[in-house]
Design a binder for these strands. Sequence first.
RNA 1: GCGCUCGUAGCUCAAUGGAUAGAGUACUGGCCUCCGAAGCCAGGGGUUGUGGGUUCGAUCCCCGCCGAGCGCACCA
Length: 599
Amino acid sequence: MRKGGLGRTINGKYNSQPTETPCILKIWLYPAHLTAPPAVPSMSASISPACCVPRWPAWRPNRALPRSSSNARSRPATVILPRELPLSPYVTKAEVAGAGFINFTLTPAARTAVVGTVLAAGHAFGRGAARSGKMARRLQVEFVSANPTGPLHVGHGRGAAYGASLASLLAFAGFEVTREYYVNDAGRQMDILAVSAWLRYLELFDEPVPFPPNAYQGGYVREMAEQVKLAHGDRYVHPAEAVLACVPPHGEGDEDLEARLDGLILAGKDLLGEDWLYIHGHVLNEQLTDCRADLEEFGVHFDVWFSERSLYETGMVARAVATLEKSGHIYLQDGAKWFNSTAFGDEKDRVVQRDNGLYTYFASDIAYHLNKFERGFDKVIDVWGADHHGYIPRVKGALSAFGANADRLDVTLVQFVSLFRDGHKVSMSTRSGEYVTLRQLRAEVGNDACRFFYMLRKCDQALDFDLDLAKSESNDNPVYYVQYAHARICSVLAQWDGDQATLAQADLAPLQHEREFALCARLAEFPELIQSAARDYAPHALAFYLKDLAGDFHSWYNAERLLVDDAPTRLARLALALATRQVLQNGLSLLGVSQPVSM
RNA sequence: GCGCUCGUAGCUCAAUGGAUAGAGUACUGGCCUCCGAAGCCAGGGGUUGUGGGUUCGAUCCCCGCCGAGCGCACCA
């Protein structure tokens, strides 16, 4: 059976005749071959949210829907319905508009009632009721989770903006949301960063150890080396000969380069002993602190910073692998332990413990996701870069192997950001140090424009980021269009000498223009939009909504004067303006965008 | 080669399986003696990559092809 079988949308279009204008409701009737359309009674619930009239009482057609096989088979039913529906006092007319459609014409009072609703609810307008009972209630959103091996770049910025807006949206929609950052503080990448800093440090003491091309090149590595020198002098200096003693000779290929790097890491650990932990800890702390500050400045907050290393220290990784082993999902081959993820739909089996005894990143990720599930979230949402898509089956497979319901994990992939400079694509890589940082972007474009720009496309659309364009476009970024509407309303309200609190009780009857009805309809959409955007993990829908809302306001503002002499009209219009400002505030704050009083 | 994602106006992007596929931008022409012109109004702009299928109805679901991005490690 087709899902739902009933569709419904409010069409925001209107014609030139104000009070005759129908608020249009689309109703899809079941195809005739479905003899018992179970969803039909729920059609009775269709009108209310977007049109701001009370829900219809439950209604059920008392005659069979037509069974003819003609292509107009839904039409006879729509002829019947307007006659059968008990007319609400808010509806003046219901008429068939075409096959499957009925147009309902609402009274002016029904169309403007949302203004009072918004003003009464204030910041809570649009907020969904808290989930209870069997419904999914507690959610976790994990996002960014970049390796703390260098500054965040514009790609991380997209994940940060998306995840933060999504989390706010879900919380506003009525869920309990935990925002989490997974810190990859264990593993080879951190060792490479530590050895990079140490080698730069040795350079400061003129030890002739060549800096490998595949170590971290960024200038921030030198800065950290200087910090270490300043704090501890030559304590970590070892002669170049000693360092190079355990490094394999120069080779040509990538494999040799990686082997040399591993040799240098080994040298560092051997020569420095306990002090290696200091260098490692120092660079980790520096990068994490920087990353955290960067995100906070961007308006991106996390409730939990979860350490990968803690999974090892508490033995969770070993336990997870042991459990899988006991349940027969692990086998030995070539000295390594493999998880049979193909049994769960993955392309190939995956190593969890290498022949050298070290666990893979996958092993700690299994433990991590198990830990997430154990914390009792009804839904775990991972926001990943699109390049990790191949990773999904093995993680879900591992969860299934534990007998967990892998559907509790949703992975949202955020497509790549390609960076263009002077019309040329710039390859971004943290190791090469060639990238534009989120900080640079924020400084040049501004936080508000940046947050909004990221939200102007859905996350599964690749984003070409032209830095020069971003700068030039920052002046006509749509965010200013939205903020401008807010500032305009503030300005008008400031020029009016009345008490804003009284506007909630204003008589709305003077609102009669079509643009006023259109603006009201847009306001009324907000709560429904919050729910659908949250359901679809689609915060971009909110950004587009705010553009539309601002557009409806600007259009009305240019057509009608608000501060007119006629007192009832003035109050009604100011009430509508105030309600608009409220919804702009509620929406912008979810996206982490400020709401300036003037600009 | 296999897999995942994506192809919509000149450009950047929207669109629960529904009515004539919409915005912005660019271009053209109008609107400040009046609450903020970072604004408004009116225009032209489309075979939704392509060929089939399912459906009363497809930008949306299914299959083929073309094109783009990304994956296909005992890295993370």
